[in-house]
Design a protein around this nucleic acid. Structure first.
Lengths: 219, 219
DNA sequence: TCCCTAAAGCTATGGATGTAGCGATAAGAT
DNA sequence: ATCTTATCGCTACATCCATAGCTTTAGGGA
């Protein structure tokens, strides 16, 4: 909740006054505009008109649409999301994947809009990196619980498991833009959990021996 | 080599004359501009100036930057690329991943530019879909060879294996924009091949029985 | 060789986008 | 209460971006 001004990367010198009010008006306008106009109609001018804040002010503080979305994302961080807990690695991963699927196919497509914006604005890209780093860190508990249960070897790399499980879904929906069938979420979870149980996600530098052999040297 | 005009989706009525010459000039200019200017300087005006073709003509035939890149991509299809053949599923997948890694970190970043453009232009998005569909189809032979060798069950889904193996790399480099260490390519290949050998990539509707059990029903 | 016309060139123009400079306002310190 | 100055609002302007309408050129069939 640090209200970092996107443009200057430092907090406003007058955080309780007009600046804060303007920021709320603008971010509300961004969300509203995104809801009933989509990404295409999310323009600096539209946001300015909708918020009642002058155009030049929006330009000054947020620079471009990516900056606006980045600030919306920053405003949304610090929520209390925690990964689902269903009793097994596979079902946990599947549940996460279903949430991702829901987010990526939601209407209005806020997530997709943010990803698209990250290719235009370094600010949005950075905000997205931060967001994902946070989510990956939280999801690591899924793998740690599986380790505690003895489901997978102790040297399993949590981050690698999470990425392997979720990447196919992102890839299909975001990059290939094909309509992933509902089973993909579950199938990816299944495949990854099979590999993880076999010790394929052991950390390279670990002394603990995994069940599967590692070290697939390439060339 | 059907030279489909991107804008009209139909071939030019005079395919050997000025139209073709103009197309070559423009596509050459796009490639050149991309090489020594990057995506940011790839503008309609720059391409027009560089190619010697008038601005309005470039607009008429290609509409926007995405259209230009889409046509460049279409112009590049029909190459004779074929997946590497190294003797095992794991090393084949690793080799593919290394090619992807090289392409995504190449300078100038043509692949990344195309992906970015696909979020702005439906034409570029469609071209990219086509391109990837083609590549996935060709990569399927990697899995088929593994089936023939008896490395993996006969009902293994080739496309699912390819996507699972390559998605983490795309995800890391393109979406997370973090600098994937060189080992990621090999590790993903290893993990997927372990799961595939265990039968985790069996086609849902297959009558053939895989070695591993399937059917991870969710909820 | 001579038309016909598809396609390119050109000019003009409207709209969107982004910035500069300056005066006005109000947050917060004294 | 008063002053200082960060921040906003406003006007004007400079580009870019994209298209419309018209003229000119040249490919390719007769």
């Amino acid at each position: 909740m640090g209200q970092p001004l996107s443009t200057t990367d430092k907090s406003p010198r007058r955080p309780n006054g007009r600046s804060a009010r303007v920021r709320h008006q603008v971010l509300d306008a961004v969300r509203a505009q995104l809801v009933d106009g989509g990404f295409d109609l999310l323009t600096m001018e539209a946001v300015a008109d909708r918020s009642g804040v002058h155009r030049t002010t929006v330009y000054r503080r947020w620079r471009d649409v990516g900056g606006l979305l980045a600030d919306v994302l920053a405003d949304a961080t610090g929520d209390d999301w925690s990964p689902p807990q269903t009793g097994s690695l596979e079902t946990d991963l599947a549940a996460v994947n279903r949430e991702i699927h829901a987010a990526l196919t939601a209407d209005p497509p806020i997530s997709t809009a943010l990803i698209a914006a990250s290719f235009r604005s370094p600010q949005a890209a950075e905000a997205l990196r931060t967001f994902w780093a946070d989510r990956h860190a939280r999801c690591a508990t899924i793998v740690r619980r599986a380790i505690d249960r003895g489901e997978v070897p102790a040297d399993t790399d949590p981050r690698a498991v999470i990425i392997a499980a979720t990447a196919p879904l992102y890839h299909t929906l975001v990059l290939l833009r094909s309509s992933a069938d509902t089973g993909l979420a579950a199938r990816s979870a299944h495949q990854v959990s099979v590999a993880a149980r076999a010790g394929a996600f052991a950390r390279p530098s670990s002394e603990l021996l995994a069940t599967g052999m590692r070290g697939s040297r390439v060339r």
